[in-house]
Design a protein around this nucleic acid. Structure first.
Lengths: 161, 161
DNA sequence: GGAATATGATTCAAACTTGAATCAATCTAT
DNA sequence: ATAGATTGATTCAAGTTTGAATCATATTCC
């Protein structure tokens, strides 16, 4: 695993960080997703869509914006909204300002589903993540993770450099 | 997002850490997966299977063990091994000690694919993750992430407490 | 030693994701 | 104004993941 290719290979510390990252992020995501599905019938991506809409102005957001904030492709979001709409948790509303555009809108029923799912989900996030972190760890992550996420926002801005 | 349900809701710091965690882990995983698929035709899960086998005794591992070390369900691994075997990158070998069991074995061709993919993949991991971390951050993650991952190993051991 | 149970692995159908193709509306530059 | 390019969103087919069901072999315990 350390061939001579001219690439700057990972150091021992980086390798430990990276392998730990992979395993921790995968196991935590899987455990939380599993809990959420069983307790509420929502996938984690469903939940994120509902939370994002619940916090948006008028409980509505344009499809393209929603796809960016929930980190999924336009196609994936479009089909997810199809399914959530079939279940009555969201609705589509055309955009008057730009006739190509659509809003996804959280319904009362969608908000109720979110409210019903939230306590169990928070408990699961605690049990799977925060119960294993010290207060200092939390401070560290609250600075580091948004910083890592924002590197992608910056990248997008000068994509054509 | 902070209803009165008797649940210990997330503090401001925890909320920032959790939202950052979600976005950073998703974006980093998506970017690295995308790079790997384009550069090598392997998915990230394919790559993990090949790396794990390359480091195993005799380049072989039992299906159940491989499923655990690569964090995927038995069914998902079985179908992944089908596809990797179709492409000649792994083989199945029956287990003599336990006639129910099977080994997945990395082929020479599989090892060659892994070696071809590795430099580009490492570069992608650097660009998407380590380039945005200080040496201290790396030390922190190298301790924290394996600790979080290991909480699941412990959980498994006293699953029947 | 044989019935009951547990384990290792695969198969199946339904649900989901992917990326390319499509389609309509808007912007740009003549 | 209008051709050409771009943008917002959906659709389509192929590939992937899910969890339950299945099947064969092993283990347990009377």
């Amino acid at each position: 695993m350390t061939p001579n290719t001219g690439v700057a290979w990972l150091t021992g510390e980086e390798d430990a960080a990276w392998r730990g990252w992979i395993e921790a992020t995968q196991r935590i995501a899987a455990a939380i997703e599993h809990d959420l599905r069983n307790d509420s019938g929502l996938t984690f991506d469903d939940y994120e869509v509902l939370v994002t809409l619940s916090e948006a102005d008028g409980r509505a957001q344009r499809m393209s914006e929603l796809a960016m904030s929930t980190v999924q492709s336009a196609s994936r979001l479009s089909q997810r909204i199809d399914r959530l709409a079939d279940r009555g948790l969201v609705e589509r509303r055309p955009c008057e300002e730009d006739k190509r555009g659509w809003f996804a809108v959280l319904t009362d029923e969608g908000l109720a589903s979110l409210a019903a799912a939230a306590p169990g989900h928070v408990e699961s996030v605690r049990r799977n993540l925060f119960d294993h972190l010290s207060p200092d760890d939390v401070v560290t992550l609250a600075e580091m993770m948004p910083r890592l996420a924002s590197s992608f926002h910056a990248a997008r801005a000068h994509a054509d450099d």
